[in-house]
């Protein structure tokens, strides 16, 4: 054996030890966070699972814990999410496309870019304050589903813009050049190539934004959502012409997290298990939305190869 070989082996052995140590540490940390998540979930399940009966989804809130349900809350959440998506998707995608494909690269667009990123870090209650001043008081939209949806839409806009830009940026420049090389205009390149190839990435971003918005409480409370609502907004579709109406937009509403908040603040422990059950629904909804985002991304990766 060469004299240096032994030293070399010691060195390699030490490096391998570092590898093993770090691997162990990382795995431990991951397990810890998973454990915390699982504990939260199990805690909610223990407390609330018993309440998750069909009636729970079909009953309005009530003063008696046993009869209270989340009907108005989940309908409110779904309708608010509809408005949020309808507001954030076109604006966010258009802004993202403009920044990536059209905007000249100068100081002004740099400022815009930085601010978009900063907006993502603004506390959600600030959006609530903005909405209260602007939407509720200035534009007199009231404490309505529309106001809530627009507020949350504003809040998730940075997420949509950033994820749109990332999805667009993942489209290789060589593909763009191929299309331009054939004589495509900027708009055609965007419409025929950039958007179709990045749509999965964009939707993923939108869903992640929505799953964040669906759990938001602070801005909704700020704009003055009610905490006790024993009726549903007018149905958006009806059997008589014109079949579709938008009255529901101006309807008062509540959403799942506010319903939860309301129940938690009650002294009766029976309401605590109602809150836990509503929390369970919220968590499952969020997990479901995230799963959908992952599935979309997986499908896009399988379908689109460069």
């Amino acid at each position: 054996m060469e004299p240096g070989t032994h030293d070399l082996r010691v060195l390699i052995g030490r490096q391998r030890l570092c590898d093993v140590l770090f691997e162990g540490l990382g795995a431990f940390m991951l397990l810890m966070s998973l454990f915390i998540l699982a504990a939260l979930f199990i805690n909610l399940a223990i407390e609330g699972l018993a309440r998750l009966q069909p009636d729970f989804f079909l009953d309005f809130p009530s003063r008696r814990a046993g009869q209270a349900g989340i009907l108005s809350a989940w309908v409110g959440s779904v309708l608010v999410m509809l408005v949020t998506a309808a507001a954030a998707l076109p604006v966010g995608v258009a802004a993202g496309i403009w920044l990536e494909e059209y905007a000249p690269k100068n100081w002004l667009t740099d400022v815009v870019e930085i601010n978009v990123t900063n907006l993502a870090g603004v506390p959600s209650i600030i959006y609530g304050l903005l909405a209260l001043g602007l939407l509720v008081h200035q534009f007199r939209l009231g404490e309505s589903i529309l106001t809530a949806g627009l507020t949350l839409g504003m809040m998730i806009l940075p997420v949509v813009i950033v994820s749109t830009r990332e999805a667009i940026r993942a489209v290789p420049q060589t593909i763009r050049e191929a299309a331009y090389g054939l004589g495509a205009s900027r708009w055609r390149v965007t419409r025929d190539h950039v958007l179709p190839y990045s749509v999965a990435g964009i939707l993923t971003g939108v869903i992640i934004g929505l799953s964040r918005a669906i759990g938001e409480t602070a801005p909704i409370i700020t704009i003055g959502a009610l905490t006790f609502i024993a009726f549903l907004p007018p149905a958006p579709v009806s059997a008589v012409p014109p079949f579709i109406n938008f009255e529901w937009l101006s309807s008062p509403f509540t959403v799942l997290p506010i319903q939860m908040f309301n129940w938690i603040s009650r002294p009766d422990p029976a309401f605590q298990s109602n809150a836990a059950a509503a929390g369970l629904v919220l968590v499952i909804l969020t997990l479901f939305m995230n799963a959908m985002a992952i599935w979309l991304r997986y499908r896009a990766r399988k379908r689109i190869k460069w």
Binding site: P172, T174, I175, E177, A178, G181, Y197, W306
Partner: peptide, 10 residues
């Protein structure tokens, strides 16, 4: 134009 790396559209 034909490019360096084959770049068919997906």
């Amino acid at each position: 134009m034909v490019f360096q790396k084959p770049n068919p559209f997906p």
